[in-house]
């Protein structure tokens, strides 16, 4: 197991490097002089030259790249012009807020989506099953930004139950904090929740007809335990894969959700920076999100092996018997 983890971490390094190269190249694709674009049309020639110097844009591309990687390795994501502070600090300010949002969305998605899928599968073709299937189908097709706007319209504007924007700090009390959190996390949870329900249903359907489920029943085990212990743990592997993939869309969806609810996370930071044409911030933040995703995927892969003892640690292929 330990060997496997080390091997996976070593395998991750080229991917991380490629991620950095991609971000570096994309930001160098800006047509014209990036420094001039960032400073806007009213900037003087001297100001543009000074920024070009500061960003090292006058150096050859490969030198720029090595400087960039070198800085990254020291945890230096560059400095923001508009925010007047190191980007690493900006990210560390905002990142916890995004994590709070993403994790509460993930919890909602798992707590509702997975049981809904299980119930749907154990009562196949019942009205309950059709309801879950229909709602989850609509859910995966949902434009989250629209859902967010509609939730604001009904629950904030019309009913006044929840605030429409911002994040409540813990200092104002736990209740305020939760009240601010509910709408954004519900919005962000919709797609993963529906995906979880769909995938849980289909993999549970595959599993409940397996012989070992029949064996468990023949032992006199209670149906609840048959489903939750014997069937679900086997249906869990595909679910885990989807969960890993959904982390990506959670982080992506966070950009839209944070914009709608003015949630002060990484997504709002990116959109703000784009408006201010602060490309260094965009570059740093996007890179950071991608790095997080690579690491999360590694964790999911390792969990995968923990859950499924059949997979051989020494090779990449899953061994049967």
């Amino acid at each position: 197991m330990g060997k496997y983890i080390i091997k996976r971490i070593i395998n991750m390094i080229p991917t991380l490097l490629i991620v950095a190269i991609i971000v570096f190249l994309i930001t160098r694709m800006i047509p014209g002089d990036p420094a001039a674009v960032m400073l806007g049309p009213q900037a003087s020639v001297q100001e543009v030259e000074k920024l070009t110097e500061e960003l090292g844009l006058n150096k050859p591309l490969h030198i720029q790249f090595f400087d960039y990687i070198g800085n990254l390795l020291q945890g230096d994501f560059g400095n923001s012009l508009t925010y007047n502070q190191p980007i690493a600090d900006l990210i560390m300010d905002r990142f916890p807020n995004t994590v709070i949002l993403a994790i509460s969305a993930l919890i909602i998605a798992i707590m509702i989506g997975v049981p809904a899928g299980i119930i749907s599968a154990t009562r196949q073709n019942s009205i309950l099953d059709y309801t879950v299937t229909t709602i989850s189908l609509i859910g995966v097709s949902m434009p989250v930004f629209w859902l967010g706007v509609m939730l604001v319209l009904y629950f904030s504007v019309n009913l006044g139950w929840f605030p429409s924007t911002g994040m409540g700090s813990m200092d104002e009390g736990f209740f305020t904090f939760i009240r601010h959190l509910i709408l954004p996390s519900l919005t962000l949870a919709t797609i993963p929740m529906s995906q979880f329900a769909r995938i849980t249903r289909s993999s549970m359907l595959e599993v409940v007809s397996q012989d070992y489920v029949k064996t468990a029943r023949s032992k006199g085990v209670r149906e609840f335990i048959v489903i939750c212990k014997h069937a679900f743990k086997n249906a869990f592997t595909p679910l885990l894969t989807v969960m890993g993939l959904q982390i990506s869309s959670l982080l992506g969806g966070a950009v839209l959700t944070e914009t709608i609810f003015s949630w002060p996370g990484m997504g709002l930071l990116i959109i703000d920076a784009i408006e201010k044409r602060d490309f260094v911030v965009v570059q740093g933040t996007v890179l950071f999100i991608a790095l997080i995703f690579v690491v999360v995927n590694l964790v999911v892969d390792i969990l995968y092996k923990v859950v499924n003892p059949k997979i051989n640690y020494s090779s990449n292929k899953g061994g049967t018997s």
Partner: peptide, 24 residues
Amino acid sequence: MRIMDGLFAFPFILLAITLMTVLG
């Protein structure tokens, strides 16, 4: 496939947003 893995690391919409920022 290494390059594709690298691209996969970006949430779909975030990659599109970043590209649009650059392309206009």
